[in-house]
Design a binder for these strands. Structure first.
Lengths: 145, 145
DNA sequence: TATTGTTATACTCTATAACTATA
DNA sequence: TATAGTTATAGAGTATAACAATA
């Protein structure tokens, strides 16, 4: 993107922002497991992306304080979604790993949200959908920057 | 979009879902006023889109129970962001309207998030940004479906 | 002494139930 | 009797402060 913002760029940025926020709110309501809080879901997502991690590291990644993460992990463990193991070298630390149950639950969640989004996209015509399909990988890159 | 999902469509839907969720989380952190809760911000946004409304109507739109909306409105009124007026015909009802202060705060909020998003988009090349600019109106339509 | 994680406690946000006022 | 809104109270979720264990 050029440093000098053109009108078309500003309009696009504005449209992107508002539609991302609105879509996310509606996607968030498509939960498979109502017994999991948003942060609990997010922790499972982080574990799925980054593999095992300690409570402190998870707290930093989720922008949550360590004591809150302690509670969240205890909840997830009670639900059989994560396992807690001692660190092999540093006995202060613990290692949190997600269980197979968590993986299948996450997959079901993603699938349900994808179905909902695909049904919504049924309201677009072929040309519009083509533009979206072109932009999807770019949007993904943007989200990971 | 065709009824029969092709692989490319499924991949695009998946990319859309995950990037929308991730971007929204990061956008949400770009707040102008830290003293406002997400729902309070959302109520102001609804008022900006739909104009004046009663507490009950706002509660339904925000998917919140009436007593919660009572509290939220009281907070917003104390901060000078909304005005409460009596309904002209039905003395049970009240009318909530946003103040000029709320309008300028919302504008500042949108602007800050747009700046952040535009800076992020600086990491894209011209071709990628062109695809995103093409897709922006489509994404907006999708969000309003 | 610094770091990792936990316990104890308080605050914020929201929900349910019971209430008031008006239709 | 039904509806709009409020008050009172309880439950999640998170934060801060103080603590325990290990480096």
């Amino acid at each position: 993107m050029p440093d000098l913002m053109h009108d078309a760029d500003a309009a696009a940025v504005n449209a992107l922002r508002s539609s991302v926020m609105r879509l996310s709110r509606r996607l968030r309501h498509q939960n498979v497991d109502e017994s999991l809080s948003p942060t609990e879901m997010s922790v499972l997502g982080t574990l799925a992306r980054c593999g095992s991690a300690g409570p402190g590291e998870l707290a930093r990644k989720e922008h949550v304080q360590p004591p809150s993460m302690t509670r969240i992990i205890a909840m997830l463990e009670a639900k059989g979604l994560v396992r807690l193991e001692p660190h092999p070298e540093d006995r202060r630390q613990k290692i949190v790993t997600q269980t197979e149950q968590a993986e299948s639950m996450l997959a079901a969640s993603r699938s349900k949200r994808n179905v909902w989004l695909a049904e919504l996209a049924g309201g677009l015509d072929e040309e519009e959908w083509a533009k979206l399909r072109e932009a999807a990988p770019v949007l993904e890159k943007l989200a990971h920057l």
